[in-house]
Every structure is written in C-alpha cells, then in structure tokens.
Design a protein around this nucleic acid. Structure first.
Length: 575
DNA sequence: GCCGTTTTCGGCCCGACTGTTTTCAGTCG
C-alpha cells in the first residue's frame, strides 16, 4: 500500500513549505491531508481509480490533483521542486525541541546551517548565540534538545509511558499534598506510542505544585516552570528519556482542562470550531458565552453544551466521532473482560506455573483463561512436544476438577509453518479446547505468501484465533506485508477471531485495523500473551486499542461468558 | 490549500512560557 509513502510526502511538503515561510494555513492543510491519507483503509490508487478522492476529509481540488499525480507517476512535482530548493538535512531540524520554522530559516539563511551536525557546530562555536533573536540560553536549550533527541529514540511505547505517568502522579499527590492528579494526553487516549506525558492537577496553589513537581526525584531536567505549568524530562525504566508536562487548574475549570489536554489536537480544533459557530469560546478554562461560563468543571458538560454526547478519550482523533456523534458505540471496557485467552507457563517460555497463572487471573476477577504454550517448532521458545502437550492437557483437566474458582481452557499457540501447514496434526488440535495459530517464522515472505499462510490457518476448523496477526514489534520489527482486507474477510467467513495482542510491544492488531475488523463484523480476542503473572496486567493496553477501533463487548470473544465463548468455538468447529 | 443552512471570499483554536525584547515573537501543546 502506497498510502504511507504518500502521507510522508505530504508531511514533508508541509515541513518544506513551513521552512520556506509559506502561509501557515496552507502548511496545515498538507498536514491534515497527510493524516487523512495515513488513516485511510483503502489504497489511494483504488480511490483514484474510483474517482473517490474528494470524499477524503481535508482533500480538495489541489491535493486531489497531487494524489493523482503520485499514483500515476510515483512522485509529486511540488515535492520535487521543494526538495530542490531546500537542503536535504534541514527538515530534521524541526524535530529539535525549541526549533520551529522561523528559527530553522534563520540558521539556514544567516549561518548556512544545513543539518543537525551543522547546527551543533554553530552552537559550540558560539556563532548561534550571536544571531538576532537567539542568545546564550537558547543555544544551551537547543544543544540539550539535540542530545535529548539522541537519547529519546523517538516516541515512547504506551506501556512505558503509563508506568511513568502513574509513578509521577502518585509521587506528585504525596509531594504537593493534592488530591486530584489525572493523566491526560495521548496516554489517556491510548495511542500505541506517545511523544510526551501530560498530567493535570486540581489545585489553587499552582506555583507551589509546579515547584514540587520539578523537584520530584524522578526528574532529570527542568524545561519550564511557571505559575500553572511545568515541563520536565524524566528517565524511563527502559533507559530512555521522556518529557512530562504538568498543568495546574482550579476545580471549576478541571473538566475543560482535562478535555483540552487530552486532545487530540485535531479533535480539539473541531470542538472549538463548533463553539465558534455558536459565538462561544472554548479554552482550557471553560466554555464561555462572553463572560458567562457555560461549562468547565466536567468534561461531559462541555460536550453536552456543544450538542454532542460524551466522546470517550480513545475516540478523540477526528476519525468520524463528530460526523457519527449520534451513533457512537458503547465501547468495550476493562471490566467487561471475563478472561485472557493467550498466556504461557514454565512448560514453554513462561516464568510462572499453570497454577500461579490461574491464581493471578482469578485475582483479576476472570472467569476463565486459556493456557497456550508454544508448539513443537518454536524450539527457541522451548516449544512443547506432542507428548508434553498431551500431558499438559491432562494436568489442566485435573486442575479444573479441583474447582479452583476459575476455568482453565487447554490451549496451544500453534505455529503456522513457512508453507502454511500447522505445527500440530488435527488429532492433537481437536484434543485442545481452544487454539491460537501464530506466524513466528518466515515473516519476511512476500505479501501473497504471508496472506495465504494466515488464511490457510484460519480455514482449519480447530483454529479459534490468529495470534498477533501482523507480527510487528513496535520500534523493533515492521509488520509483515499482510493483505489485511483479505485476512479480515476470511476471518468473517471462517468464524475465526483476530487477536489484539495486548502487549505494549505489539498492540497487534493496531487501532485502525481493529476498526476495519469491527466494521466488517469480525470477532476479536484481546489477549496479553503473558509470560508471567505480572504481564496479565497488560490487558488494559489491548482494551484501549480495541476502544480506539470502536469495538463493543459484542465483538470480543473473551468479553463473553464461558458458555458464550464455548458456543463461538463450537460454531467454528462444526462449520 | 480547504471550506461553506449566515459565507465561493475570507476566514482558518487559543493560551502559557521563555528569551530576548524594551512590548513581543517564537514555540509548544
């Protein structure tokens, strides 16, 4: 699919126009188009062929022409022109905290800086500090910004950010003696990776709280510290660095501020436009008609006053939540989850026993779990032999006979081999209560091959779920070149569920794929793939991903009762 | 460059913080 490449081209056009000092609104329209294209489930080439480009939000006559140009020739003239007029390494400067288009333009035109290395040299030689509009402090900040970029290695995975956010919120409650600290930003929206962490505190003692915040032990550097706002950098447990912003607001503005700092930016722009149309004003302090405050203490009141239902944080991406405000789904929530259908034990590469996993799952309130240790071919993960799997099934039957208050399904995570065959014969699969089939090898095969293997696995009547369907590892391994449309279609036809692997290193399926699957009527299973009792806690990331894909309880296998789950498994087995 | 039940032209969200200014531009979210 060429969508990603085209979205990157439009993003770069926006950067280049910005650096060359073009109209900011024109710049923004390219950014908007880039985002829309990245969100599309259809290939742009198909949309061009069907003359359906005009239906894409933010795509008008000019952008449509450029998309068509890209589809027919593989490039966009404007993009090529701009690339010819701006040094190749210049757009990267925009990623440095503190560098915006005006500063990039200044260092380029006045100092001949063409890339990050040049900028660093200009700072170290003292030339940058002499530039009009710059100074010693700016130079120092930019140097720190360049170093931060090197250490942060881009965006932080959701799971890492959550743990940092919760630790800081807890520490701040204690240090500043405040009752209410909430997580906002893309962490609250459950994005798979986040750029920074946003915290919101309810207090009338702003400066005091910000002061306490900047002095927390976790804080490595302070970026800004004002009366209502502070910004710091903290070290993550994974050895990276992460920026954390804190805002302090009063009780009557807390809802407006929480709404505002939860974003997304695109969602907020739409919301403010609605306010402007009513001649009102919306900011982080409230919704106002002149000097009269219409709403502010609670998020829901802001939405209600603007004629909308409460929109859940995970939906706030300007991906149709306004157009379809009247028909928003009742999203699945963590409490709906009745079990976890993919986890490992010491029998393969897990750290805890069957009994320990079951006890921990029961502690989370689950009615059932499925133990799915690796199959024979996953030698590196200590995959079970046929004899060991049979013995494990026996052990699970014995466990269930003791009535421990949780039902354990005897499962397996069966490898899909490089030729599409399953690692276990049907005689063994039928002995299991439940089967996850996953690709762990030959993931670099071409689109046709990996898609065929996946669909072939789904056609086996004993395969209940396809595990981590695209095989991606966030920031480490690209997804397989899977034809997701074909896989979703086959999932619907064969009554096979697709997994949302809840591990924050995977989140696979991802949100946009979930949305496609839900709309097509496919079933999902949200599983932690836990290799230890603690990892059962990753379920929340999977649920957030499902919510971002507009999933309801009805489309999730392990949100069903045990009887409901068994019915789904039986329906597939019986064809 | 997009967009439109007040508009096909003239808008396009709004405020905090910092540093370099001498009243504000730039950046950020």
């Amino acid at each position: 699919m060429a969508n990603r490449e085209l979205a990157d081209i439009f993003s770069e056009i926006a950067d280049l126009l910005e650096i060359t000092g073009q109209d900011p609104f024109r710049v923004n329209s390219y950014r908007r188009a880039a985002r829309s294209i990245d969100d599309l489930s259809d290939d742009v080439a198909d949309l061009v062929a069907a003359d359906r480009l005009k239906g894409i939000p933010g795509v008008g006559k000019g952008t449509a022409e450029k998309i068509t140009q890209y589809v027919t020739s593989g490039q966009v003239d404007l993009h090529q022109e701009l690339l010819g007029s701006v040094p190749e390494g210049l757009p990267a400067l925009l990623a440095i905290p503190g560098m915006g288009p005006k500063k990039v333009q200044a260092v380029w035109k006045q100092l001949g800086v063409e890339n990050v290395g040049d900028l660093k040299a200009a700072i170290e030689s003292g030339r940058l500090a002499e530039l009009s509009g710059f100074g010693a402090k700016t130079a120092e900040k930019l140097l720190a910004g360049i170093e931060f970029l090197g250490r942060s290695a881009g965006r932080t995975p959701l799971g890492v950010a959550w743990s940092v956010a919760e630790a800081l919120a807890e520490a701040l409650r204690a240090a500043a003696k405040v009752d209410r600290v909430e997580i906002a930003g893309s962490v609250r929206r459950g994005r798979e990776t986040v750029g920074d962490v946003d915290l919101l505190c309810e207090s009338t003692r702003g400066a005091e709280v910000v002061e306490a915040f900047t002095q927390l032990p976790l804080v490595k550097a302070v970026q800004a510290a004002g009366k209502t706002k502070g910004s710091v950098r903290v070290a993550t447990p994974e050895g990276g660095e992460l920026q954390v912003d804190l805002r302090v607001v009063s009780t009557e503005s807390f809802g407006a501020a929480w709404q505002y700092f939860t974003g997304s930016k695109e969602h907020n722009v739409r919301l403010r436009e609605l306010a402007v149309k009513k001649k009102w004003k919306l900011n982080e302090y409230g919704l106002f008609d002149g000097d009269t405050m219409l709403a502010g203490a609670k998020e829901v009141d802001i939405y209600r006053k603007l004629g909308l239902p409460f929109i859940e944080p995970e939906l706030r991406e300007d991906r149709g939540e306004f157009e379809r405000a009247g028909e928003l789904p009742k999203l699945l929530c963590l409490d709906d989850m009745r079990g976890d259908l993919h986890m490992h034990t010491t029998a393969s590469d897990g750290r805890n026993t069957l009994e320990a996993m079951a006890a921990a799952a029961k502690g989370r309130g689950y009615a059932y779990i499925a133990i799915c240790d690796h199959s024979h071919s996953s030698a590196i993960a200590n995959g079970l032999s046929a004899e060991r799997l049979e013995a494990q099934i026996e052990a699970i039957r014995a466990f269930n006979a003791k009535k421990r208050g949780i039902i354990v399904l005897a499962g397996t995570e069966c490898d899909v081999l490089s030729d599409g065959r399953l690692d276990w014969p049907d005689e063994l699969l039928v002995a299991c209560d439940y089967v996850v089939a996953s690709l762990h090898s030959a993931m670099g095969q071409d689109r046709k091959s990996v898609t065929r293997r996946t669909i072939q696995a789904m056609e086996n009547p004993y395969v209940t779920v396809i595990g981590h369907p695209t095989g991606r590892l966030l920031g480490k391994r690209e997804a397989m070149d899977l034809d997701i449309d074909a896989v979703i279609q086959a999932a619907v036809q064969t009554h096979t569920a697709l997994e949302i692997n809840a591990s924050w290193q995977r989140l696979d399926l991802k949100d946009t794929h979930v949305r496609q699957a839900v709309e097509a009527g496919a079933m999902l299973a949200i599983n932690t793939d836990a290799h230890s009792t603690e990892q059962l806690g990753m379920m929340q990331y999977g649920v957030q991903t499902a919510r971002r894909g507009w999933a309801t309880k009805a489309s999730v296998l392990n949100a069903q009762t045990l009887a409901g789950l068994k019915k789904c498994i039986a329906r597939k087995r019986e064809g």
